[in-house]
């Protein structure tokens, strides 16, 4: 890919809302029961350059997908990790981050 060239950037339309081209996305991963309920294991989501709170990101996921809305609402004790570290609902997610959403862990 020839990303990063001046020409490439100039070609992005003014109303472009972000994609892999601009890097204004986060990768969202789902695990275990949540992955099965939502019916997929990963998706990309556009986020503002300044980022958004984890709680707002979850609301966006629910607003865009009814299965996600149901699954997230039914799982009262969701855990969220950003870049492999557990985080609070008020923590910020920024473009390029990897966000994982999953039920309480049951290892051992």
């Amino acid at each position: 890919m020839a990303e990063g060239t001046v020409q490439g950037i100039a070609e992005v339309p003014q109303d472009f809302k972000g994609s892999a081209t601009t890097g204004m996305t986060v990768t969202v991963l789902y695990f275990a029961a949540l992955r099965e309920q939502i019916g997929r294991e990963a998706q990309e989501l556009d986020v503002p350059a300044e980022g958004l709170a984890v709680s707002a990101l979850l609301a966006r996921l629910g607003a865009e997908d009814s299965r996600a809305a149901t699954a997230l609402a039914e799982q009262p004790r969701l855990r969220v990790a950003v870049n492999h570290a557990l985080c609070a609902m008020s923590d910020m997610v920024r473009p390029g981050d990897e966000v994982a959403v999953f039920p309480p862990m049951t290892g051992g």
Binding site: A32, A100, F102, M105, T106, G107, G108
Partner: peptide, 24 residues
């Protein structure tokens, strides 16, 4: 600490064919 802090999840499979995720 491993049981609740490391991202592992268990799914149980029963002789009846039922399959359920283990609750924390």
């Amino acid at each position: 600490r491993l049981k609740t802090g490391a991202p592992f999840w268990k799914k149980e499979e029963y002789a009846s064919g039922a399959a359920t995720w283990v609750e924390a």
